[in-house]
């Protein structure tokens, strides 16, 4: 093989390795970036929705207190508004997450909770009845908020677990770079050794041979066993010197 092709092939191999390592790192980092954004978005939106549901239920609690005080119009308006916010948020969450026990539990509990305040309160025995509020309404309200808080807690722990996974995956993105750096150093050392052994050494041998021929009239006895221009050069020198 000609020297230029040998050197080209050597550098090409180092470059191929670096390109592969770089490409892999870029690919892994892009995947990681996508996953990070998806994870943060999904969990942030989920937590936001659950918070909206919690606020809606708390608003319903305040609306029921208005009804207990006999303020029918304000109470029913607030209840209607809070209920529509809750249902819209819940349905949106449900459409995005197909299989979620926590959401199912919230939905089922909300139906029970809604059934309590849906029935008339003003101008019935319930108006001003704190005993009904404490014994019937509050336990159901607490159950509903508790289900929402459970779902929030689940979302938070999922966010933590997914973040941990992303952290572990960042290792995969990092490794090709580290391995490539170490390999490139080793390859450079190998390349140095080969250049010194198969290019510098034969040139120095021929130089010494020629010097000895010129100054000491010693015969040119240099053996080059690399199958390239240096071997040809050695042969041509021998021919020129008539050996």
């Amino acid at each position: 093989m000609r020297i230029k092709y040998k050197l080209f092939a050597g550098f090409l191999l180092i470059n191929i390795m670096l390109v592969i390592a770089g490409s892999m790192s870029i690919y892994e980092l892009l995947q990681l970036r996508k996953k990070t954004v998806t994870t943060i978005d999904a969990n942030y939106i989920a937590l936001n929705r659950l918070n909206t549901m919690l606020k809606a239920v708390e608003s319903e609690d305040r609306a029921v207190l208005l009804l207990l005080l006999g303020q029918w119009e304000d109470g029913r308006n607030q209840l209607s508004k809070a209920d529509s916010i809750f249902r819209a948020t819940y349905l949106e969450a449900r459409s995005r997450v197909k299989d979620n026990t926590a959401l199912d539990n919230i939905g089922n509990q909300y139906i029970v909770f809604k059934h309590i305040w849906e029935l008339p309160i003003v101008d019935t025995k319930k108006q001003g009845n704190l005993s009904w509020y404490n014994k019937t309404f509050i336990p159901s309200f607490r159950k509903t908020t508790s289900q929402i808080e459970k779902a929030m807690s689940y979302s938070r722990s999922r966010l933590h677990a997914e973040s941990k996974q992303i952290f572990e995956e960042s290792y995969t993105a990092l490794m090709p770079g580290i391995v490539a750096i170490i390999s490139a150093i080793l390859m450079s050392l190998l390349m140095y050794f080969f250049i010194s052994r198969f290019f510098s050494h034969p040139i120095n041998s021929m130089l010494k041979g020629l010097k000895d021929y010129n100054t000491k009239k010693k015969p040119f006895r240099v053996t080059i066993n690399t199958n390239d221009e240096l071997k040809e050069l050695s042969g041509e020198i021998k021919k020129a010197l008539g050996e």
Partner: peptide, 27 residues
């Protein structure tokens, strides 16, 4: 599988280190 990338890269590194001496070292 997620191990494909690590196997491919390792295969290339090993191949390159195997081919490298073949280019320079004569028979």
């Amino acid at each position: 599988e997620p191990s494909a990338a690590s196997l491919l890269f390792s295969a290339f590194i090993t191949l390159i280190f195997g081919v490298f001496p073949m280019i320079f070292v004569p028979r």
